[in-house]
Write a protein that binds this DNA or RNA. Structure first.
Lengths: 344, 344
DNA sequence: TTTAGCACTCGCTTCATTAGAGTGCTAACA
DNA sequence: TGTTAGCACTCTAATGAAGCGAGTGCTAAA
């Protein structure tokens, strides 16, 4: 177990390194007002801390830098009490006081304010579209051979697919089918649509519609969703400004991950239970993110998780501040969505 | 005027520099098989070319590098004849042989193949949405207070807006309004909708609908388009691999431009007439693009420009190859769209 | 247990040196 | 008169030595 003095030293090392980005030496530490003992004592303690794996040197005679384990301990046990400035709080709340009716816009704004305030990158995973319930299906013919199929969910999400619709199919059939689909499928979660069509709708369609085959294929294609959930990124380029990424190769690796997006999707999906989660460096298990931490929070309605909101920064990131900001945004977002979804 | 020999030297310098990225010296040049005269002669000619502003030195005793004026002359007069490989041609045509019915997907694929083949960044400006004609307007109520208004155009483009719809408004009124709008506005280009509503639809609505004010405001809001045209970028991160951007500051500046997107919008809009256009370095007049060239092409149907497709690379880019690729994609795209739009 | 002191290590910067690539100029050549 | 060989010169990039400063580990004394 660590002594109180070791904890103090570890905390100050991490705080200082987060602040200034420079390895912290015993002399620097001895000058801090919280510290009443000499640099030699500090050196002894630091040697112990290093042996335990909480800090490390960049080279044999350098100051110390937190190791991944050190950050982990810091985040788990040493986080300084939060203090957001009035400014931060106001900036965030101003968004949620605006009259916004579109989920996408609200989420986008949340992501943007977070990346602006932190200077890191923000990722937000929207509610899983699969769980949204179908409000209506529409098929709008465009010309002799194509039509656009439009799906609307109870959350106001709209998705479209252009489909072929040979002129041999009578318009009345199309109309009939749309009616049948809406009658039978309204209120069904999107993920269950395919099943429901097979079990309950197919036989009705076969009875009433001539080109049953083509139509069924077409409608299945339309319901095959592009995106299982929408993802929004903001402040992608903020990482350029972080001094740890002045190395072009590290930067390349990271920007590739950011650009790909699919890794984020995986990471954010992983976060199931409520609350804040901090993943440091290699804990993320993504190549290119060794020097990054990802802090995720969920937002929810009635205790049920809707989506995830996350901030990506260097491992040397302002954990305390980011966690507070994230908490604030997540709870505000949850509140607004609770009001929306109540009205159903 | 430049002599034939000067032209030959200029051409070889540009070709060589594009290929290897290193300043070209007289000795290197004298070894090229096209060159029959000595390095001393070359030095004399180069001194003249430099005085005329076509080439420059990176430092006083270095080899020569094309200046912006040099690239300009090269592009205008010295482009080597095109030779695309079988592979390139096949890669491009494979896209256009796929069964794709969605404009967005087709454009996205075009952008992607171009950025893959060139290793540069591709930008495509879709057809101006404003000119699309309204196919239908739908209003789908979501809950007691909101609804989603959906606009579909003749090209299959779909746009949605969530709007407030107080429960005090009778559903029959909404239905009535939608009918009136569809009756009067189908086939009208989106850009004319607002006018048309004021002049032709407003008075009809007033006659038939109670909460005329709110409804009119709502519908105006819905028709206020987000995007005047859609833009697609592909291969944003390709620029990371260009050796000219191993300087982190230049990279930052460029990625900011790429991320902002609005500059591209401006640049691509500028290209009105048909054909290929090459803008080199500062000709683009965008900060951060001093070391880039932008090659744009238009695609069109029946001689009428629909959109623009562009490749962004370093000034030291493979002009000849990119121009050919761009030409091929643009003409193929035009062909496919001609078939689509013929059927209206 | 704490601290002062000291030898030692390493990274960073500066400075000088050298090799190499390339130039401009001059004088000789065809 | 145009072309070329030759040479002095310039500048970059790479290399290495020297000195500085920050920091460490260890020892011995308080």
């Amino acid at each position: 177990m660590l002594t109180d003095r070791q904890l103090l030293i570890l905390k100050i090392i991490v705080d200082d390194f987060i602040r200034f980005g420079q390895p912290v030496g015993s002399r620097t530490l001895s000058k801090k007002e919280q510290i009443t003992f000499s640099s030699a004592t500090i050196r002894n303690e630091m040697a112990d801390l290093e042996e335990l794996g909480f800090i490390e040197k960049t080279h044999i005679s350098s100051g110390r830098v937190p190791s991944q384990k050190g950050y982990r301990y810091y985040v788990d046990h040493l986080l300084p009490p939060v203090q957001l400035t009035q400014k931060d709080v106001q900036a965030i709340q101003s968004i949620f006081h605006e009259q916004i009716y579109e989920l996408e816009k609200l989420i986008e704004k949340s992501a943007q304010i977070l990346s602006d305030l932190t200077n890191y990158t923000t990722v937000v995973l929207g509610p899983s579209v699969k769980e949204h319930k179908l409000k209506t299906i529409q098929i709008v013919p465009l010309n002799a051979e194509t039509a656009v199929a439009i799906i609307v969910t109870d959350t106001g999400y709209v998705e479209k697919h252009v489909v072929t619709l040979p002129s041999s199919i009578p318009p009345s059939d199309v109309e009939k089918m749309v009616n049948i689909l809406n009658e039978r499928l309204t209120g069904v979660p999107l993920e269950d649509l395919t099943d429901k069509i097979q079990t309950e709708v197919a036989h009705v369609l076969r009875e009433h519609i001539q080109s049953y085959d083509h139509m069924l294929r077409m409608i299945s294609y339309s319901l095959d969703l592009n995106a299982p959930a929408q993802m929004f990124l903001s402040g992608k380029m903020n990482m350029l400004r972080q001094p740890e990424f002045s190395d072009i190769d590290k930067l390349r690796a990271l920007l590739n991950v950011i650009e790909q997006e699919k890794e984020f999707y995986r990471l954010l999906r992983k976060h199931k239970q409520q609350g804040i989660q901090v993943k440091i460096g290699t804990e993320n298990d993504v190549e290119g993110m060794e020097n990054c931490s990802l802090i995720t929070a969920t937002y929810s309605v009635d205790g049920e998780k809707l989506g995830t909101i996350a901030v990506l920064g260097p491992t040397r990131m302002e954990y305390s501040r980011v966690i507070s900001l994230l908490n604030l945004v997540a709870t505000d977002l949850s509140k607004v969505l609770s009001v929306w979804y109540q009205k159903d």
